[in-house]
Design a protein around this nucleic acid. Sequence first.
RNA 1: GGCGCCGUGGCGGAGUGGUCACGCAGAGGUCUGCAAAACCUUUUACACCGGUUCGAGUCCGGUCGGUGCCUCCA
Length: 472
Amino acid sequence: MKLYNTLTRKSDDLQPLNPPKVTIYTCGPTVYDYPHIGNWFTYVRWDILVRTLKLAGYQPEWVMNITDVGHLVSDADEGEDKLEKGARREGKSAWDVARFYTDYFTDGLKRLNITMPDKLPKATDHIQEQIDLIKKLEEKGFTYVIDDGVYYDTAKFPHYADFARLDLDEQQAGKRVDFNNQKRNVSDFALWKFSPKDRKRDMEWDSPWGKGFPGWHIECSAMSMKYLGDTLDIHAGGIDHLPVHHTNEIAQSEAATGKPFAKIWMHSNHITVNGEKISKSLGNGITLEDIEARGYSLEALRLHILESHYRSQSKFSWESLEAAQNRLKNWHSIAALVWQEVNHEPKQVKDHEHTVERLQGLLRTLTISLQDDLNTPQLLSNIDEAFGFVEKTLLSKTSRQVYMSVLQKIDEQLGLNLMTSNISPEQYALIATRQQARADKNWRESDELRDQLVKQGIGLRDTPHGALWYRL
RNA sequence: GGCGCCGUGGCGGAGUGGUCACGCAGAGGUCUGCAAAACCUUUUACACCGGUUCGAGUCCGGUCGGUGCCUCCA
């Protein structure tokens, strides 16, 4: 199985440390606001990663963190605390805000049919682990303390700039911030921040260095190592994390353990909405509720997400969501054929043999496409081709069985719900009655029966092979 | 300014040098009691200019354009 590795900047073969187990850590949400579709794009993509690992015969162990402690608004460790800010906005405590958005987030995972990670550890439940890790870094001489906190000295970590290929001298030229002459490098970052002397924070803890709260980056190192060991098979996250968060995670973790932190780093690219990037500051985030309010299903959103590759900067628009919803609708009607007996003409028997071949071919290409760095767009086109063939030739008894296993496999890998249940005998009876009415040219009765079925969520299309139903 | 990425038909979007996937939308047609489908046909798509090659959307160089990060952000 091949995955593009940011570390090596090429597609690497996955070679887990302890196969068949594959350890995965993905950066989760900071729970201080509603996630927007851009966030969900990323989580769906990691869901596909996990499902593909299972397909490839691995046993993925997936940990995603919940950042419920307010790291500061800026990577330069300046400014406001996000959770405290959210708390003020909503007139709640930081703890309440964190709880509310954590629940919202896990609910969203279910709504989007995203595999539940094996663990969703919260930063606030792992303060001690973070303190221990900072202590370790302190013992090894990677830290220094200034007025407002304990910092990581990036100059002590020789390969700090390698991962993101940063040019630290040129970077931020003309933008050099004055850190009260207390920070030696702009790239240094906080491991532990002290509480302000004049104010009590909602969230603060005692530490060997004084009362305060952990820096943003340390939680991921501490929790991933606790649950998955010193070296991860795969670490994944949004592409925005590459230059700062992930760079810092590597610096902390590798300084502490002396071992590689992750073998493969994967980055999900951002999406744009109407050509603009989504950002908190622009306030153009679309939520799941916005999607549903416009009459689109989250399943359509899911399919839309799969229509682009995770490494490309994809575009979101209502128009393309509409296209995805239409495509899904067509898929549903073709999927419903799995339940339907059709009167075939003899000449089609040969086609049915080809149908079986096509469907088995789809199972092969499905595996190939996904294991090739999660090429979902290519897989979708494979599905379309096979479905087109099914539509054209209809199904025999044999091919129906194969088709059923194909639909189940697609649902399993893509998290769609193409396999719906069969309709009831009563509904089949209604269809048969309508067919008789049509044969008698009793159009009024025939149309009434059709309306009746529509009310039950069943659509019909009349073909030379009889009336075929699909779920509306 | 530094480090990157990208330019594919109306829209979205794959493409690993060798008949330019696929979806959505549009147009025309066949079929059809109506409806819905289905099927067929359909517009010189690979930003531009050079180069390498028997052959380039695919490799190399340049030009133009867009865009991301270097403040928050998946």
